[in-house]
Amino acid sequence: MIRAPLSVTSVLDEAADVVSITTPWAAVLILTSLPYRFLQAVFLDQLMEAGGTAYRYGNLLGGTANLIVLSILLALWGRAVYARACRLALGRGSTPGRETWRVPLVAFVSYVLTASVAIFAGYLALFTFIGFIVAVMFAGIAIGTMELNESTGLLSPFRVMGRYARRIGIPLALVFVFFCATFVALVNLAAAFSLGRWLVTAIGGFDAPHWELLFSGGNRRFWLMLFAGAILIVEPFWVAAHVVYVRKAGAVESGDDLKAWFADLRRTS
């Protein structure tokens, strides 16, 4: 049910509720995104290792990039399943069941098209920063509108997205909120690892001398994995927020939120 007028805070509030209802499905999202994020971290590690001579390792980097593309398809399917879980949870107010697996093929194919365009644009515009932000915003609207695609076509998914991109302020604000949230998650994850390492080394008769080296700030791979982990933690909230945003924006367009508010007023009076 639409509970509050469309705003950034109401979208985030309702998204947090939806994530708490759909926790089992968030696990599906995280599991399907793990290979993608892990390979991205490996790719960045290879780039940092090669440094200025990276252009000489085209085959190695290209091989990892191809694996990333394959893992993207699995990650996109996981996102599609989770977006459906969020949509069903919003309608019912309870954890959705097995019907969540039945993502309409039209919706998924349309989502692969819009998401691949967003990924392509994101890498192409990485230098410009603003372009990268627009690509992330575009990717968010793509997952939010996924289930609204009822027919296949090269342009129809973009037309659906265009309807929800008119109020540019809220999707843009969501990009900045989740950018900050990723760093908050990173700090928390790093603190949790430090605490875990400290607790394990405190166990009598158990010595882990290498752990200090492996799980410390000096290890580049540790930081890359932490960053990948932070994105995985934030991702269910990001998907849920965009599904909630699209539903609320649709309700505003149809006047449904006004009807719900008026019905509430009549009930209380």
Binding site: A50, A54, V69, L73, I119, Y123, L124, L126
Partner: peptide, 16 residues
């Protein structure tokens, strides 16, 4: 997606 993989390598090598 295929072009995305190529652009990823190109952008990554350029940034590195």
């Amino acid at each position: 997606l295929y072009c995305g993989a190529r652009v990823m390598v190109w952008t990554g090598a350029l940034l590195a």
